[in-house]
Structure formats: C-alpha cells, structure tokens
Simulated assay, not measured.
Amino acid sequence: MIAEEVTAQSAERMAALHAKCFDQPWPASEFASLLSMPSTLAFAIQQDARHLALVLVRIAADEAEILTIGVDPDFRGKRLGLAVLDRAERAVSESGAISMFLEVNQHNDPARALYTRAGYSEIGRRPRYYRGRDDALIFRKSLLERGQTGA
C-alpha cells in the first residue's frame, strides 16, 4: 500500500482514524486548520474511502516535526506506520528539512519501537507533558542520508 499526500478535504477521515488511535482525538476542524497552513503536510494510506494510516508533519526552516501519526488498530503490524513515515520523510527532505523530530508518550511502547526501527534516536524528555502525568520522550532523525547537503 502506498502513502499519498492528502489535503484538508480529508479532515473528517483523518479525525475518524485519530479517534480510533488516541484517547484524546483531534476534531476534523483541527486537521483542516493545520492543513490550511502551507508548512503542514499530511500523508495517508487509504482503502475503501477510509484512512488506515496517517501522518501529519510541519516544516519550519530546515527541521520538520511529526504532529501526529496513527495506524488503524485493525491494521497494525503490517508496516503501514513505516510506510507513511517514510513518505513524510521523503517529502520534508525534498522541501529542505535536514532533520525530523517528534514527541511520544514514555509508555507508548509500540510507537517507540516504530521510531527506533525507522532510525530515530531519543534525544530528550519533557516531564509530565501528557495530561500532567506522563513524560514525553523527544526523538530525532537526521534526513541528510536522503540526499540533503545541509547547504
């Protein structure tokens, strides 16, 4: 399955998938608002007019941030997370970003495994970032191997 770029017109489908993946999902209006910004991109793997996996990223100067990523629980373990992540990395690298970072809940072992498998390294921690309880782990990956020179 191939990850394709999606627009704010997919906000309802993005919100529906996000609700399947997270306890505190974002509404469609949040996806639409973020995607109205030229620095924000989204990629999804779709089947039968629904999203199975998505990633939303924002580019700032030579750095990109993963705002959210999710895979339908019924389709996990099929490398869809890696596919949307790879597609996002290619796009932001082509836009001039030389690194990508994200925050992940310290207790989200499947996501941490995905990021590690994709070449991300833990570089920091934000104490009590999630609901004032759980720490966020900060992960980063250099995209220079994707052909960027940094010049």
Rank of each mutant, 00 (worst) to 15 (best):
E12I: 05
P127F: 06
R126K: 03
L137P: 14
A111I: 06
S121R: 09
A28F: 00
Y115W: 01
A49Y: 13
E4I: 11
E65W: 01
E122W: 02
Y115C: 02
K78H: 12
F43G: 05
I69H: 00
I98F: 09
A19C: 10
T149R: 01
H18Q: 05
A61I: 06
Y115M: 03
L54F: 12
H51D: 14
R128A: 10
M100S: 13
A60Y: 05
H107D: 12
C21Q: 15
R79C: 12
P73W: 13
E30V: 08
L102G: 06
E30Y: 04
R125L: 10
R58S: 07
T7A: 00
R13L: 01
L143D: 02
E145S: 02
S39F: 14
A11R: 04
A88F: 08
A49H: 12
S121F: 08
D86V: 03
F22A: 14
R117N: 11
S93W: 02
P25D: 12
I45D: 02
L41A: 01
R112D: 05
T7V: 04
L54T: 07
K20L: 14
M14I: 12
K141E: 07
D134N: 15
L34N: 05
C21P: 15
S121A: 03
A3D: 14
T68C: 00
P110K: 09
A42L: 13
L85I: 09
I2L: 00
S33T: 15
R131W: 15
R146W: 01
E65M: 04
A8L: 14
S33H: 13
R125T: 06
P110I: 13
A113S: 09
Q47P: 02
I59F: 08
S39T: 12
N108G: 11
T116E: 14
L67V: 01
S36M: 05
G77R: 02
I98M: 11
G81Y: 04
R117L: 15
R126M: 10
S36A: 10
Q47S: 09
E12W: 01
L102N: 05
R58W: 01
E12R: 03
A15D: 08
E4N: 07
D86H: 03
A61C: 10
R146C: 01
R90F: 08
V104D: 08
R58D: 05
V92Y: 01
I123A: 00
S36T: 05
A44N: 10
S93N: 02
H18L: 03
P73T: 14
D109E: 11
D23Q: 11
G96M: 10
R90C: 07
R131K: 15
M1T: 13
N105L: 14
S36G: 07
D74W: 06
V57Y: 06
G96H: 06
T7W: 00
S95F: 07
A44S: 15
L35T: 07
M1S: 09
D135T: 04
T68S: 00
W26L: 08
